[in-house]
Design a protein around this nucleic acid. Sequence first.
DNA 1: CATGAATGAGTGTTCATTCAT
DNA 2: AATGAATGAACACTCATTCAT
Lengths: 218, 218, 218, 218
Amino acid sequence: MSDSVSTGVGTDADADAADTWHDYGRSRLHPVLEGALRCFALHGYHGTTIRMIAAESSLSVAGVYHHYPSKHAILVAVMSQAMEDLWQRSTAADAAAEGPVDRFTDVITCLLEFHTQRRDDAFIALTEIRSLDAEARAAHIAKRDRQQRLVEEIVEQGVADGVFEAAHPRDACRAVVTMCTSVSHWYRPDGALSSSELAQRYCAIALAAVGCRTVTRG
Amino acid sequence: MSDSVSTGVGTDADADAADTWHDYGRSRLHPVLEGALRCFALHGYHGTTIRMIAAESSLSVAGVYHHYPSKHAILVAVMSQAMEDLWQRSTAADAAAEGPVDRFTDVITCLLEFHTQRRDDAFIALTEIRSLDAEARAAHIAKRDRQQRLVEEIVEQGVADGVFEAAHPRDACRAVVTMCTSVSHWYRPDGALSSSELAQRYCAIALAAVGCRTVTRG
Amino acid sequence: MSDSVSTGVGTDADADAADTWHDYGRSRLHPVLEGALRCFALHGYHGTTIRMIAAESSLSVAGVYHHYPSKHAILVAVMSQAMEDLWQRSTAADAAAEGPVDRFTDVITCLLEFHTQRRDDAFIALTEIRSLDAEARAAHIAKRDRQQRLVEEIVEQGVADGVFEAAHPRDACRAVVTMCTSVSHWYRPDGALSSSELAQRYCAIALAAVGCRTVTRG
Amino acid sequence: MSDSVSTGVGTDADADAADTWHDYGRSRLHPVLEGALRCFALHGYHGTTIRMIAAESSLSVAGVYHHYPSKHAILVAVMSQAMEDLWQRSTAADAAAEGPVDRFTDVITCLLEFHTQRRDDAFIALTEIRSLDAEARAAHIAKRDRQQRLVEEIVEQGVADGVFEAAHPRDACRAVVTMCTSVSHWYRPDGALSSSELAQRYCAIALAAVGCRTVTRG
DNA sequence: CATGAATGAGTGTTCATTCAT
DNA sequence: AATGAATGAACACTCATTCAT
């Protein structure tokens, strides 16, 4: 879980305190990816040109190609690092908690924070799957499914333990996860809700969705 | 509410039974729009070329332009008709029910059915907002907000009546509506769940999300 | 010289009074040609579309094709009728005068009036030669040369008679004719000069250009 | 008057002898403009395609766009450089002479030489005004008027000095200038007249047109 | 490392023209 | 006589990408 990630993202110094999944400093993406991300978020992959990315990252067009071999490679880098980052954080959040309710709360909180703090990354990871080539798409979907299974596993455990009462746990998971990922569609950092306020409110709703009667954390 | 829609979509013969919002016959879109819809759903607006649309609608490129003046106009037609259709169905569903719980159930069911039965239309309406020009975008967002307000109004009524216990009704509405619209991202008609099964399960989850203790429909 | 013209233009009833070349009633062009003429004058042949011509002549596109088989045929009709009209008027003007000075004055006056009264026709005839196909171009140039020779013949007669003193009669003719045809570039009917005022002033200049010492019609 | 011209045209090294306005070396236009010029002269602006220009300048279509952002920008560059070149030469010619007769002779000679030596440039500057957009057209017309006023000013001086006897100086100027600019319509370098022969003959005619009795240059 | 110049393939769009009705 | 629907070819222009320097 604390493996150093080759992609350059993730937790670079895991303290004992397993709360690193809360920390969102400056994004550690390559400047080209930073620029590309802004462009993709605004205009989509196909609506973005290499010249836009070059301008956004203050490089020449050829300069962009010096760092990444193709526009598609840039998309792959952006998406895979996003998924990897989310996975590192999710497993860290999961490991830091015990019992289905707290694990669920942590993982969903992590998911929500990621979708507010890394909104563009999450948005692209959600909406540009179709722009990936077959190989990259398969890899991406595997990561997405891994993420989904983590939630499902927790909920199924909760149902087995009798703390969740979801009639259809997998559907509840789908509902919960999609309502969280949808946050990247509408959340604005300068809006009415802070990231943590949103997380609290949505966690309560998510717990209700999986039929949790108990109150969180004690 | 039963006004015949000038866009050519929607229920053209409203029977007394206010269940017309359940009926999804063959989509009544112009062949060009049908073809464009398939393309947009697969590749996105910017990833779709006029030549694809022409091929998909069995016309020449110039033939497409005989019916619609630009690619953007095609997108506008697709999206506005989708929003109009959904609105007609939603208001019909709302009108057919009484009391917050049943109104909520009907409107959410309607939303879910629309997102399974008109999955591509709904998907485009959700994901291609950024591809609209300023004017069309404003019009689209107005329609989207109108839709959102309908749900909020019902939930607020439910809270006022004491049948819903949502701590934050507007956030609950957001969560509910986005988990419903997200259905267009993953639902497959040939998958495990039928449209009505999905609607039933998701309605239960949605009711839980707004803090409804009572059971639906008696 | 007074042959009835198959094109449908020209003097349709030659009275004894040989002044018909002065008369500019409503242009007798086919409505399609009238519309095309306005378009060609504004945007040039290649800058004009069949749809513009259709709109300008209050017909459908197919309606235009009912009257003329192609855009090119319209140009040919416009240009050939203009050249024919000018030739009819020029020979009439020539025939009505006697002696080089008066013949010159009449023919140049005729040329000037044509370029103010039939400005667009003259302008197209001057500027769209390159847009004609080989055959039509050859025919057009023959008519243009015929026109030029008429002036040259008169001036050469004048030089032979000793009333003109042009050192290089053909060059003087070129200068005179081009300064007259150029009138179609700048003349505006609502400008400072009336058609006849312009003709008078330019005739004086033209006579000077061919070295005429005597005063006209004295 | 000997300001170095930012357009890259014009006299780059003004010797004392103010005869630089006679020198027509290889045109210093950008290869793309050279190619475009040939095309425009043959087929007109609207009759010319970017592919023609690309072929004529030995570049790919995209290569043309690397140097100029649009077909229209190419036209603007061609026309504005032509007008600037003519203006530099005209003012040089004017400054090199004294007295209305010699100034007139020099400026008209300059005008004629330009229209034989830079025939295509001059032709385009004369015939494609309507193809310019509003802004470029205004700029062009301002330059054209400036050119016209130079001639008018000289002639008016000549009339004031009593060396010219034009009854209507401005009309005479129009006649003279248009007969000079028309040279670009018909002159062929391999024709009967050399550029200087033509200039001599036309100058004599132009002097007659403005009512000059004295003989030029001594 | 970085870039200005270049390009083949493709973009959305328009063209003159046809034809069934 | 007149037209709405249709089209192949071409239009101006842009794309992702390459490469000599």
